[in-house]
């Protein structure tokens, strides 16, 4: 599991872990039923306080994304959670927000941006099919 934390930006470390695990699940890089690293090993890998990792795992558990099995460890939840879809949507929304903001700044109207999207889709299509 590839996670990277940066203490310098204001986001608390446990939230950085939660966000990245959510992203990994949404992107399909963590499959349902897959085991997450133990609290201790993740703490040693990231060189952070184990309590922080524990807190992140608790948060993920309450969100229903992971399930703790007694004595066995922490696993990605089996059910394709609706939360995963919502999360994917959230990630996309952030990109669209950035696109719109930049588009407005460069003087494009919304219609122009939408038609540009169709245009790009046409160009990208063949390469996607390959």
């Amino acid at each position: 599991m590839q996670i990277h934390v940066t203490p310098q930006d204001g986001v608390p470390i446990y939230r950085q872990i939660v966000n990245q695990v959510k992203y990994l699940i949404a992107a399909g890089r963590l499959k349902p039923g897959e085991e997450l690293p133990s609290i201790r090993s993740l703490a040693e890998q990231l060189v952070i306080n184990p309590n922080t990792v524990a807190r992140a795992y608790r948060e993920l558990e309450t969100a229903g994304l992971v399930a703790k099995r007694r004595t066995a460890g922490t696993f990605v939840a089996d059910m394709p959670s609706p939360l995963a879809r919502r999360e994917r949507k959230r990630i996309l929304c952030r990109r669209i927000d950035a696109l719109l903001a930049e588009g407005h700044q460069l003087g494009f109207a919304l219609e122009e941006i939408v038609s540009l999207c169709y245009e790009r889709e046409q160009i990208l299509q063949p390469s996607l099919e390959e």
């Binding site: 201790r40 703490a43 040693e44 060189v47 952070i48 306080n49 184990p50």
Partner: peptide, 24 residues
């Protein structure tokens, strides 16, 4: 980290490398 992973142990440290402090 290993020291506190063992239940009940405490670490007290001073530092001015703040990203380190913030991590652990």
């Amino acid at each position: 980290i290993r020291t506190i992973s063992e239940e009940g142990r405490t670490v007290m440290f001073s530092s001015h490398l703040l990203d380190e402090v913030e991590r652990v």
